[in-house]
Design a protein around this nucleic acid. Structure first.
Lengths: 112, 112
DNA sequence: CATCGATGAAGACAATGTCGACATCGTCAG
DNA sequence: CTGACGATGTCGACATTGTCTTCATCGATG
């Protein structure tokens, strides 16, 4: 297996955050989702770097946002997860799932 | 948050594999468990390096195996997850759990 | 035009993931 | 006793991922 075959821990979280946001996945929203759902706070730079890497692996794609960006500055990018991205997410979820199964007595049940 | 606050993807898997093995957590068994449950095959060197890092973070501890190692060579090391290790596992599981929740329509349900 | 706010991009460096090569120590055939 | 062998474990090197700060852009505003 080549080294980069598995997505890192943070890469997975970013992919999941994008999926959750649907059409609204711009950088700032992803940052907020990551903080809200996983308590993970990172700088914009960190996120963009990760997004770049995910793109070069073909796990995400993006398009410029239409509507006149009144907010000024660069036009925002809207991200979406590619089929390959979904595939890899599914695979790593299943792997973790199997490792977790049966460990509730030790770890307790997941919090809602 | 300090950089090394979150365990990497593979580190998590190793911790889980050790938990699953209970008293039997020697290196080779961990390697087998990782392969069987998660389809993750790595070399012994990779595992030991990861184990060393987990130890220096205080997430795992180990002891020498007693019984005359007829298998020859070094006495095997038996690993176990520390309370801090359990704590960090629980935290990252909860984080992923929240990100995953509600995405079954897209990802499908986890395979057994 | 100087500045500000919202974005995004780049550079640098730390943490993780990964392997292959090598060191050790019993056992066992000669 | 000695050298080959198998089971472990250790190391150094290098690729990938995670992370931040600093810099560059561009519209709107004063």
């Amino acid at each position: 297996m080549p080294p980069g075959a598995f997505p890192g821990e943070f890469e997975q979280m970013v992919l999941l955050a994008i999926l959750r946001l649907g059409e609204e996945a711009n950088a700032l929203a992803i940052l907020r989702e990551l903080d809200d759902q996983a308590g993970r706070r990172v700088s914009r730079g960190t996120l963009y770097k990760t997004l770049d890497r995910l793109e070069s692996k073909g796990y995400v794609a993006w398009t410029q946002e239409e509507a006149t960006p009144e907010r000024g500055g660069h036009a925002r990018r809207l991200f979406r997860v590619s089929p390959d991205g979904i595939e890899v997410l599914r695979a790593s979820r299943d792997a973790l799932h199997r490792l977790w199964s049966g460990l509730d007595p030790v770890l307790g049940r997941p919090a809602t």
